[in-house]
């Protein structure tokens, strides 16, 4: 698969939120305001790319060599949790401004299934290092796009007259459904 195909496929056609259902919790949790959505998106892009590269080397260098593939889930989640802590420490030391912008989102990322999902899918699809990196970038950009689009709609939705029972999460889910229908239109791209 060429790099362009991977990017288009992961951002639009197989968008992680609308078509693959990964990262729904943060999608519903932080898509209230455009500003927080962008912050979360940047933090996720950063962590997903780093963790994909790291888990790729761990899978090829350690797990495959020693025949320990069945430990994949345990090892990957530990690596991701440690990585998130590490990134938090480094950013805090190096750039307090960036830390203030991303700080709150970083701990939340450990339990974001996009991170573990992308790491496992990279291995399952048999991508090489370059494809892994672009798959990670594409998927997290797709996630960010979904977050920003949804936050735009939800900012307007706060002023709308929604039936009492549907206020909050239910209407957010229905909105996401309608956006997902729009994303189905990208199906013919590849």
């Amino acid at each position: 698969m060429s790099i362009a195909t991977i990017l288009i496929a992961t951002i639009f056609v197989n968008n992680y939120v609308f078509a693959r259902f990964l990262g729904i919790c943060p999608f519903l949790g932080v898509s209230n305001k455009m500003e927080t959505a962008t912050g979360m998106g940047v933090a996720v892009t950063f962590v997903v790319t780093l963790s994909s590269i790291l888990t790729y080397f761990i899978q090829k260098g350690i797990l495959d060599k020693l025949g320990l593939e069945y430990l994949q889930t345990i090892v990957f989640i530990l690596v991701i949790a440690a990585l998130v802590q590490f990134v938090e420490l480094v950013i805090k030391k190096m750039s307090p401004t960036l830390y203030n912008a991303l700080g709150v989102y970083l701990p939340l990322i450990t339990t974001n299934c996009v991170v573990l999902g992308v790491a496992i899918l990279n291995i399952q699809e048999g991508y090489n290092l370059i494809q892994t990196i672009f798959n990670a970038i594409g998927s997290s950009l797709g996630f960010t796009l979904a977050l920003i689009l949804a936050s735009g709609v939800r900012e307007k939705l706060e002023l709308a007259d929604v039936p009492e029972a549907l206020k909050g999460f239910p209407i957010a889910l229905i909105t996401a459904g309608l956006m997902s229908i729009a994303f189905l239109g990208f199906n013919g791209l590849i």
Partner: peptide
Amino acid sequence: GILVMPPGAFIVLGILIGIFNV
């Protein structure tokens, strides 16, 4: 068919939570 495709999941769950709320 739309219900078994991804959009259906969002919409049906949204409506079910609404009913549960009521």
